[in-house]
Design a protein around this nucleic acid. Structure first.
Lengths: 223, 223
DNA sequence: TAGGGCTTGATTGTCGACATTATTGACGAT
DNA sequence: ATCGTCAATAATGTCGACAATCAAGCCCTA
């Protein structure tokens, strides 16, 4: 999908800074400070804040400024639920639209995942996971759903709950990815959607577990 | 859900004007004119435009101003697909969370619908339909999904394709609503989601039909 | 000493002016 | 006559300043 040329750089930099965790949840975002920090004028910062508010990454209250939005536990779960629903839709469409190239790439990613899992190397699994999902999104050719899923601050969640993936989850996650791949290869719409939703239901459970045992671990969100 | 106090009125008025069709698709939105038309300063208009761009109602290109976004046929279908996915999720949650009050209200709406259908009165069916769905949203208690569905410019679609609902569709739509209601009453998660998705799949078909036979009819989008 | 109102400092909201950029139309060359 | 170039115009992007608003600390009173 073509990236729109509008968000004026300041938006991008501020967004990056937030999802990278440079600002803490609920931290106050003073326009002047940010303008300095981002190396931009206050006007641009204002526009960026409006955009980020609409996107849900910050809250903007009249005359009271902006804060990084704290993602509550329940909201984190809600976000993942929405993601599951939409990625299910994307997987369904992808099942009819995947091209050989896509399948090759997906297969490659899975092979790499398997290698990592075999030697217990969980570093970089997250990136592979992202590659897997994003390839499916691309294959689905559904800009609307993609736009929404992309703007869903899953990244923020990933940062806030830096805890989810456990080694013993990796194997299961791998099997789920294989199931998705198989359904896509067979052009099985129902199967693909179901497999994707099952996968993300697992992710949801993992997130619930992470929330319950908050603050204990390190690792990554599977996907 | 509590409405946030931020969008500075100018946003609301401009949004209303757009979805009400006061500006034509692809019409250029000149900040000065709008500022006058809306009775607001250019600054506020600018903020509103950024917000509406993020929301997808207008496109904003650097140094080239804003236009009301023309919703292409394929995008209209995509939007309805997303809506189906998310309303499916909402229906599922509602199935476990509905309270007697909700069920009473829903039953009432259906009864009213039936009355209208019986005497061939399709006027106002759209409002009843909206009431039905919104009550389910409220019961689902899922702010995230609600926010997204609400920002989905289905209204714009409804305006652009002022054609969809036919009398003979009304009966079918009614039966579908009854099925949803029954599943909710029985607290049947899977059933509710499935019924809702089936219903919206019908809506999608209707929309496809409307697109194919563009420009022939008047009526309303079912829901 | 506790509470309420007020002053003060800081931050946001708005406006006007100006620089920057696209678009339109005319003009001239081929 | 058509195309390319260039000036004129209109609209947007940005900046600085000022007004409006909020939060906090202070003082005064009971």
């Amino acid at each position: 999908m073509r990236v729109r040329p509008v968000p004026s750089d300041a938006y991008h930099r501020l967004r990056e800074a937030i999802v990278a965790g440079q600002f803490h949840p609920n931290e106050r975002l003073v326009e002047a400070s940010i303008a300095e920090h981002i190396r931009a004028g206050r006007t641009a910062v204002r526009a960026a804040l409006v955009r980020l508010d609409q996107e849900g990454l910050v809250t903007l209250e009249k005359n009271r400024g902006a804060r990084v939005r704290h993602v509550s536990d329940s909201e984190a779960l809600e976000i993942e639920e929405v993601r599951a629903a939409l990625e299910g839709l994307l997987a369904r469409r992808a099942a009819t639209l995947v091209k050989p190239d896509d399948l090759r790439e997906l297969h490659l990613v899975i092979k790499e995942m398997k290698a990592r899992v075999d030697r217990g190397d969980s570093i970089g699994y997250s990136e592979l996971n992202a590659r897997f999902h994003q390839r499916i999104w691309a294959a689905a050719d559904h800009p609307t759903a993609m736009r929404i899923v992309g703007g869903l601050k899953s990244q923020a969640i990933r940062f806030q709950y830096q805890t989810a993936m456990r080694p013993w989850r990796a194997e299961r996650s791998l099997r789920e990815h294989e199931a998705i791949f198989a359904a896509l290869k067979a052009h099985d719409e129902d199967g693909a959607e179901e497999a994707m939703r099952a996968h993300l239901a697992e992710v949801l459970d993992t997130l619930r577990w992470a929330i319950a045992a908050q603050g204990h671990g390190g690792g990554w969100l599977p996907g």
